[in-house]
Design a protein around this nucleic acid. Structure first.
Lengths: 135, 135
DNA sequence: AACCCAAATTAGAATTAATCTAAATCTAAA
DNA sequence: TTTAGATTTAGATTAATTCTAATTTGGGTT
């Protein structure tokens, strides 16, 4: 029996390429772009193609293994931490930082009531100046 | 003396093109993309160019007259409502809805403390199924 | 152990959104 | 009325992502 992501409801196979992509994302502290992931994955599997990185990222996003963070018109960044957490983005240098505000999770119910949506997740993003830029 | 956006700290002139762009955004209930704004602005000013729409949108964003909403890899959408408010995005059909959760504004201080950022704004986005898609 | 088939990978083309460039035009102020 | 800086324009360019079509892979049968 092949390795599958059964526990995530997917029938996709965990190929060497996908393992490499996942490993890259999980090994990094920061939030790499698809291009950065491609570069790093190529160090593990020289023949891997750009399309495969994007395909893997799409699958992981859909099965909940990674999270895509997009802001402005710059390249999306990928986050391998699956627990719910929040982001702060520096309006000056673009730095992206994780933090956790459990109050944010509590707001999901209220947000769902106001919007009449069936809630899945809630994203809280703080825009402001990072410690380096506020001097 | 020409019309300026002085009250917003800008020295930019309010040209007919920019007036058209602003009028289009404010007249619409939804959140148009740059392309939709271009199409609508052309009905008012047939000679207006794409670049001018983008230039205007950049200026308005910087002076705080409009807000840019970007999610996933689709085109950014523009929001003419300047008051702080929240968004819900349907994970099925992509519909974008406004709502207001004053508790969200209260979280800005806590978020700033956790992240050590100097806060400017906080965005709260609910992902889920819109009333039409949840059936 | 050979076969089958669906899924996955690959390279490169295509698409999309947004920005840049350079020349022409406008406008407020001197 | 001249000028300098800001703005607009059309089209080229860039950057990110997705698509296409051909090839390869690998697990589940026979």
């Amino acid at each position: 029996m092949a390795k599958h992501f059964k526990q995530h409801g997917s029938t996709a196979r965990l190929t060497p390429q996908r393992e490499a992509v996942l490993q890259v994302i999980r090994a990094r502290e920061d939030h790499p772009t698809a291009n950065e992931i491609f570069e790093a994955a190529r160090a593990l599997l020289p023949a891997i193609s750009y399309a495969t990185v994007y395909n893997s990222l799409r699958d992981f996003r859909e099965t909940g293994l990674v999270r895509e963070i997009s802001f402005g018109n710059s390249a999306s960044r990928y986050d391998g931490i699956t627990d719910r957490h929040d982001h702060a983005i520096c309006t000056n240098c673009g730095k992206l930082v994780d933090f956790d505000l459990n109050e944010a999770a509590d707001l999901m119910g209220a947000a769902a009531r106001k919007s009449r949506f069936k809630p899945e997740t809630v994203y809280l993003t703080l825009m402001g100046l990072c410690p380096d830029c506020r001097e």
